[in-house]
Every structure is written in structure tokens, then in C-alpha cells.
Simulated assay, not measured.
Amino acid sequence: MSSSCDPQHAPAGDVGAALMVIDSRLKAVYDGMTETGPEQQELIDQFTASLGPKGASDVLDGACTLIYMFMNWLRMAYEDHEKDVIECVVPNLVATMRMMPKSVRPEAIPTMAGLVIAAGTGLSPSLWRKQYGGWTAAEMNPLEATAFLLAEHINRLTDDRAFATRMIAEALSSALQD
């Protein structure tokens, strides 16, 4: 039986732009930059302003697509070791977000956990979220943090700081060739 939250019904969004944001955050963290500098923040603000409402919505959908793809990869990786992806990913994600009170407000954590659980059970994160209303401004940083933390989790599992980004870039490239 098909769900209204089945990924086949979801827009993919601008996965490339969402991936660019996550990749730049990963590189900044790996380079030891814990705070966004004024120049980087200005570039982010300019990029965000240039998107417009439709573009911003596409990047949100792209971030949800990343979360779905990351959780799909993690599910397969954990199943290979006879482990449950939800059990292995969600507690760590929630604990990490709780340590990020400047970026992730406590009230956003259950939504992000639900988003990850939806993706981990094969549902579209964007359609799952849509059933509870539109995105709020307070959910933007937590959404970015969720995608970032999943990518970083994959990179740690593979012992390759670029694995998650490369995996998505290769999938996008392959999809464009088909």
C-alpha cells in the first residue's frame, strides 16, 4: 500500500544547492572553523537573498532529499551489520543537537528526529513534514544541522571526510546522464 509520504510523490528540489551548503559546512568544520566568519556569513546571506521564495523552497526540498539519501545509505550500511538505522542514528543525532543550543532550539529537535525517522523508514522527509504545516524560520538551522550531522556520520563510518558529498555528487551526475 502506497503512503502519501512515499518519496515518489515528493519533489527532489535543488539537491545541488543543498549539497553545496552542507559541503561548505563540512569543510569549515574539518578545517577547524567553528564559527561562521563575517565574510562567509555575508556570502551565505547573499546566496539566500538571491534565491527568492521558489528557490528557497527548492533548497528546502533538496535538503530533505539529502536527508532521505543519507538515511537510505545508512540504513543499508547498518543492515549489512544486522543493526537498525533508527537505533544507531537517532539517539546520537538528538544528543548532538542538544549540545548545539545556539543553532538548534530544543523545540525543533523532535521535528528533526521525526524527519530522520521518516526518512529511515522509507518516507519522504519533505512530505512527512508538510502534513504538519509549512516550514518555520526556527527550523532552518536545525534542518541544515540535520543534513550536516548525517553527512558527518557517514564520513566517520567510512573514514573519508568527503564520502557523503561525493556519493551524492556521483548520484546526481549519474541521474543527469540517464
Rank of each mutant, 00 (worst) to 15 (best):
D45Y: 02
A113G: 02
T96Q: 12
Y68H: 12
S2N: 11
M140P: 00
V15W: 01
N92C: 01
K54E: 15
M97P: 08
T121Q: 15
G52E: 07
G37R: 03
S173Q: 12
Q8P: 00
S124I: 01
F70A: 14
L127S: 05
A162L: 03
Y78R: 08
A162F: 08
D84L: 04
L115Q: 09
L74T: 06
M1V: 13
V94Y: 04
G13E: 06
P110K: 10
L176I: 11
Y68R: 09
E82L: 10
Y30G: 11
D14W: 01
A95L: 07
A145Q: 13
E35K: 14
A77M: 06
A171K: 14
P38W: 03
R75Q: 13
L143K: 05
T48Q: 07
S103C: 05
T136I: 00
Q8Y: 09
A63F: 09
A147N: 05
L150V: 13
D160M: 01
D45N: 15
A95D: 15
C88H: 02
V89N: 08
E152L: 07
H81R: 15
A175R: 14
S173C: 08
E152T: 03
E35G: 07
F70H: 11
S174N: 11
Y132Q: 12
P101K: 10
I109T: 02
A10F: 06
T158H: 08
D61S: 11
T96S: 12
A119D: 04
K54C: 02
L127W: 07
E79K: 13
V15P: 08
N72K: 14
D80P: 01
G134A: 12
T65L: 01
I109F: 09
D61G: 01
G13R: 02
L123Y: 11
L143N: 06
D23Y: 00
V94M: 05
D84M: 07
S126I: 03
R161Y: 06
M76G: 11
K27Q: 13
A118Y: 09
A118K: 10
T111S: 09
M167V: 03
K102I: 07
A118W: 09
I117L: 02
P53N: 03
R25I: 14
D178F: 09
G16D: 07
S103D: 13
S174R: 14
E82K: 08
D159S: 08
T136Q: 14
Q46Y: 05
S124F: 04
N141Y: 05
R105F: 02
Q131T: 15
Y30C: 02
L149W: 04
C5E: 13
R156C: 09
C64T: 02
M69R: 14
I168L: 07
P142A: 04
Q8F: 11
F47D: 08
Q131C: 06
N72S: 15
A138D: 13
G62A: 05
A113K: 06
E79S: 10
T48L: 08
E35M: 11
V59Q: 04
R161W: 02
I86W: 00
A151Q: 06
S50V: 00
